[in-house]
Amino acid sequence: MRADVERFLDWLRIERRYSPNTVQGYARSLVRLEAHAQALGLSRWEDLRGAQLQTWVARLHREGLAAASLAQLMSTCRSFFRHLAREGRIAVNPALGVRTPKLRRKLPQVLDVDEMSALLEFPADDAEAVHDRAMLELLYSSGLRVSEIVSLRWSDLDAANGLLRVTGKGAKTRIVPVGRLALEALDALRRQDHADDEDTILRGRHGRALSTSGVRTRLKRRARDQGVWKRVYPHLMRHSCASHLLESSGDLRAVQELLGHADIGTTQIYTHLDFQHLARVYDAAHPRAKRKPR
């Protein structure tokens, strides 16, 4: 059973080219699955039944495991058993009919336009500020994931046409636009660093590529210095970019392409944010909606 798990993880790394963090997530879930199978006294995956998985999910839920974690766990199990079926190791995927608790989807937090302006508008009067301005402008301009921005090289940027080649989840490549202010900030950074095409755009100490934790730390510090007291983190910049773009354009498909979502259902969460904005404007402005003063 362990050998089947290792072969599956190798397939994710080599064939699917998943990131190390993603593979580690799969591995953690499969450790739990193995422990469950061993507790049942099983020695072959083909002996595991859907009812046994359903009982396991119910027990984990009673023990307090969150619905999102259960959904992720069963998603991993389904992928693993689907792989075993392709390899001829099992005849039926036992996880297919297993239900998990309904997932309550939280709306992402965003900065409003004024808060974003307060965050981005600081003088680029020293080397660190030039770097941070480029980093923040690019995060907001192009809606990048933190894992995407740290891997960017100058060769990925087509400054003349305002385009950026981004490698996202599953090693999928997409082309995204870069706004004027972000391009100006990037030009200042490249001139400051005397960077070559194959240099990473974001660099930390000693010229090494900036880490994802480095991006988070610098973003948090810059937000504090700018007086933005919300918790500011890279994915908040991505959420804010998507929300502001959808609010202005109403083009859900374009936002999906920008963010690199495989499923438009993932992008549709931003329509709820847009409706919330509409409701606030309506309540504040419509003559028949204004609340009477108390």
Results as ranks from 00 to 15, higher is better:
130 V>P: 00
112 D>C: 06
126 D>Q: 09
31 V>D: 08
75 S>Y: 07
100 T>G: 04
43 S>L: 09
44 R>Q: 10
240 S>R: 00
38 Q>R: 14
194 H>N: 12
50 G>R: 10
248 S>I: 12
71 A>F: 03
84 L>G: 00
52 Q>Y: 06
144 L>R: 02
251 D>P: 14
177 P>A: 06
59 R>C: 01
261 H>K: 15
84 L>A: 01
33 L>H: 00
247 E>Y: 06
232 V>W: 00
100 T>M: 03
167 T>Q: 11
61 H>D: 03
131 H>M: 09
288 R>S: 14
5 V>Y: 01
92 V>H: 15
72 Q>Y: 07
135 M>K: 01
118 A>S: 15
93 N>R: 13
226 Q>K: 12
154 W>T: 00
171 A>T: 09
61 H>F: 05
123 P>A: 04
10 D>G: 03
7 R>D: 06
221 R>F: 07
27 A>W: 13
2 R>L: 08
245 L>A: 02
273 L>W: 06
58 A>G: 04
16 R>A: 09
284 A>I: 00
273 L>Y: 05
158 D>A: 11
175 I>F: 04
280 R>D: 10
113 V>N: 02
233 Y>F: 15
125 D>Y: 07
134 A>V: 09
270 Y>W: 10
263 D>H: 15
125 D>F: 10
263 D>Q: 14
26 Y>M: 08
46 E>M: 02
195 A>F: 01
63 E>Q: 12
53 L>T: 03
36 H>P: 00
118 A>I: 10
1 M>A: 04
21 N>M: 05
23 V>W: 04
2 R>P: 00
226 Q>Y: 12
86 R>N: 15
162 G>A: 09
282 Y>V: 10
71 A>M: 06
251 D>E: 15
209 A>T: 05
15 E>M: 04
71 A>E: 08
72 Q>D: 10
230 K>V: 09
37 A>H: 02
22 T>R: 02
29 S>P: 01
244 H>N: 04
205 R>G: 04
25 G>T: 12
81 F>Q: 06
54 Q>L: 13
273 L>A: 07
150 V>N: 01
87 E>W: 05
250 G>Q: 15
289 A>R: 04
159 A>T: 06
88 G>V: 03
46 E>W: 02
82 R>Q: 14
261 H>C: 14
104 R>Q: 15
96 L>D: 13
120 L>W: 08
152 L>T: 12
176 V>C: 08
180 R>A: 12
191 R>F: 04
177 P>D: 05
254 A>L: 15
17 R>H: 06
167 T>W: 10
268 Q>L: 11
